[in-house]
Design a protein around this nucleic acid. Sequence first.
DNA 1: TTAAAATACTAGTAAATAAGTAGGATATTA
DNA 2: TAATATCCTACTTATTTACTAGTATTTTAA
Lengths: 141, 141
Amino acid sequence: MSFFGTISSKKHNSLRLIIQLAQSYTDKKPVSLSEISSEEGISIKYLEQLIMPFKRADIIKSQRGRSGGYIMIKDPKKISLKEIIWLINDSPSLAICLDKDYDKSCNYDHNCISKNIWGKIQKSMEGFLDKIYLSEILENK
Amino acid sequence: MSFFGTISSKKHNSLRLIIQLAQSYTDKKPVSLSEISSEEGISIKYLEQLIMPFKRADIIKSQRGRSGGYIMIKDPKKISLKEIIWLINDSPSLAICLDKDYDKSCNYDHNCISKNIWGKIQKSMEGFLDKIYLSEILENK
DNA sequence: TTAAAATACTAGTAAATAAGTAGGATATTA
DNA sequence: TAATATCCTACTTATTTACTAGTATTTTAA
């Protein structure tokens, strides 16, 4: 059963990735993608792509070269699930017409019911996810 | 901004469709797809496909032949958003591994954190959507 | 009676997206 | 200086989405 369809493997793996990386925050030691690769069974090349959004958001930083890797620089206690899921997603809005960049006017009414509903759902989700932090997720491990 | 990616046009249109159909519950008069087609700008052939899940779930019934169409037979006061969104979705589970039919054992741990998280989110969503009814949506129209 | 208007069912298809692969460049350090 | 990392970008394959199309069946208004 699902509400928004199956979570893509990309999202699934991105989440697994960030959970792995969280280790490095307390260790203060970089984790390399080759380590994660062998633990998670995902190719390094693919992990490189998955990790990028987190780096761009300054949740992690990279250390190049031998014995390098990635270190989480934001406290997992301050990283909300909302933030993570936001980064994992590449699409702008739940409904296209909720997106501010979407200026092509909707074919339908200005006051689209469908739009309102998806907006409502999204708000509820935001509220929920904003209260769960990465640190809590790790504890349940 | 989104949590589960952009809502597909199919879902968007399915929702618009069921809202249109709700009219027929009080009217007790069938609404034809050709009417909805011209109102919503969606082809009849496509609407035929979108409407099927609702029919199978006995939310609406059909009346064939001239002056026929579809009539909603379940009270909109008793149709929750959860039910609707469930029907709109075709995929089994938020995360594949949450699906009971998914017997191919997960590559990963039995106790997958990612799985737990998506499961949590889903439960929260269910609770939220189960409290909103189609009738309320129509009132906000 | 019959033509029009509706649903019912199934197959096919073009476009977009997802999910990765691949290759090479650059940086760092043991 | 060789090994081991990240970085960057292009390409490819498979799947999914969003339809279209055709045909059969049913019903009823004229």
